[in-house]
Design a protein around this nucleic acid. Structure first.
Lengths: 178, 178
DNA sequence: AAACAGTATTAATCTAGGTTAACATTGTTT
DNA sequence: AAACAATGTTAACCTAGATTAATACTGTTT
C-alpha cells in the first residue's frame, strides 16, 4: 500500500522545493548561493543544507562541487521559477485582493506555494489580470468596501481559527484525493 | 537552532489535521468513525491510524477506547470544523471563481486546507460572498469571459509548471516567514 | 608560512509518520 | 459454544529531514 497525498510538483518535496527557491533568490540577489546563506534564509542548520544539496545534485537540479558555492542547473532554474512565481502570485492575491496583512500573507504564501497546482495558480493570475484591467477598475474597490461592511456585522466562529505563526517545522501530511 | 516553517494551525501537524477531518467527515456521514474507515479514506495502513489516534487522544482531540470507535471531543470538533471549512471554502473558490476543474480543485484544496490561515480563508469567504451579492451579479461572468480570451492569447511559460497529481506521500518543508 | 576565522562536510542521533507482519479482540455463523 | 472473519493493536522497521558535535577545507592575517 503506497502513501497518501497527491504530490505537489514533479516529485520534488516541499522541503527541496524550498531549498531551490532559496538558492534562486540568493542567486538573483548576490549572484551566488552559499551553504551558510541558504541555511540562514531557511532557518535550518548547515548540515541540513549539505544533505539537501546532495539530493538536489542527484536529481540534477543544482551544480555543486564540494566546498564550493551552488548554482541551479537549467532544470533547477525552471523549477525555481515555478515555485517563485507561485509565491509571488499568491502573495499578490492575498495582499492586493483579499487585503490580508503582509506578515500573514508572507507566511501563507510561503506555505501554499508548495501545494497550489500550476493550473490553479495560472487561474489566479488571470484573476489578478482581470482586476487590473481598465474595464474593471471599480471592482476591487467595491470588494474592499463590501468587506468592510461584512466585517462589522457577523462573524462565523466555526471557520475562523486563528493561527499564530511560529517558526517551526511542519510535518508530513497523509491524505489522498480526498 | 529550531526549525523552519511557520506551523499551520495551533500545533497540529497537517497529518493529524487530516485525520481529524476524516473522522469528522465519517462522523457526519455514518455517525461514527472506525479505524478501518479512516484508513481507507486517507489511504494509509491501519497501524498508522492507531498511532495517530494515540497522539490525538494525548492532546485531547478524540475520545477513543481501545478496540472501539472514535469520537471527536469538543475541541477536536472545533479543529475539524476549521479545517473542513477551509477545505470547503478553497474548493468553492477554485471551482466557482477560478474555474479550475474539479479533480484538480479537490487535490489542491485538500493540500492547501492545512496551510491557509484562518485570516486568509475568512477573507476568501468575503470574496465569495461578494461575488454572490445581487449587486455584483455580472462580475463573475465577466471574469470567466475575460479568462477565455486571455487563455487563447498568450501563455507565460515560466509560471505554468504542470503538476500531475499522483498519490504519494509528501515530505516535510523547511522554511520560515521569508 | 603559521595560525586563525569562516565555511562546509561527515558522522551519529532524533523524530514524525509511514510500512508489514504478527497477534489480540470482537462479533457473526454455524 | 466453536470457529472464522473482520477489525484493531503491537512490534519491528524504514525514510525524510532535521539536529549537534566533530572534522576538514579555504582564505586572510600576522
Amino acid at each position: 500500500m503506497p502513501s497518501p497525498h497527491p504530490k505537489n510538483l514533479g516529485d520534488l518535496s516541499p522541503s527541496l522545493e524550498h531549498y531551490i527557491r532559496a538558492i534562486y533568490d540568493l542567486q538573483a540577489e548576490k549572484g551566488y548561493a552559499r551553504v551558510t546563506d541558504i541555511s540562514e534564509i531557511l532557518g535550518v542548520a548547515k548540515p541540513a543544507v549539505s544533505s539537501a544539496l546532495k539530493n538536489l545534485r542527484a536529481i540534477g537540479l543544482v551544480d555543486h562541487r564540494v566546498y564550493e558555492s551552488v548554482r541551479l542547473t537549467d532544470e533547477g532554474m525552471k523549477r525555481a521559477k515555478s515555485v517563485s512565481g507561485k509565491y509571488a502570485i499568491l502573495l499578490e492575491f492575498l495582499i492586493e485582493v483579499l487585503g490580508v496583512d503582509k506578515e500573514q500573507a508572507f507566511a501563507d504564501a510561503c506555505l501554499m506555494e508548495h501545494y497550489v497546482s500550476g493550473t490553479s495558480s495560472d487561474r489566479l493570475v488571470d484573476l489578478l489580470r482581470f482586476f487590473e484591467d481598465r474595464k474593471n477598475q471599480g471592482v476591487l474597490e467595491d470588494f474592499h468596501a463590501f468587506r468592510r461592511n461584512c466585517e462589522s456585522e457577523s462573524n462565523c466562529p466555526d471557520c475562523s481559527f486563528h493561527c499564530d505563526v511560529s517558526l517551526q517545522q511542519i510535518g508530513k501530511a497523509p491524505d489522498r484525493g480526498r
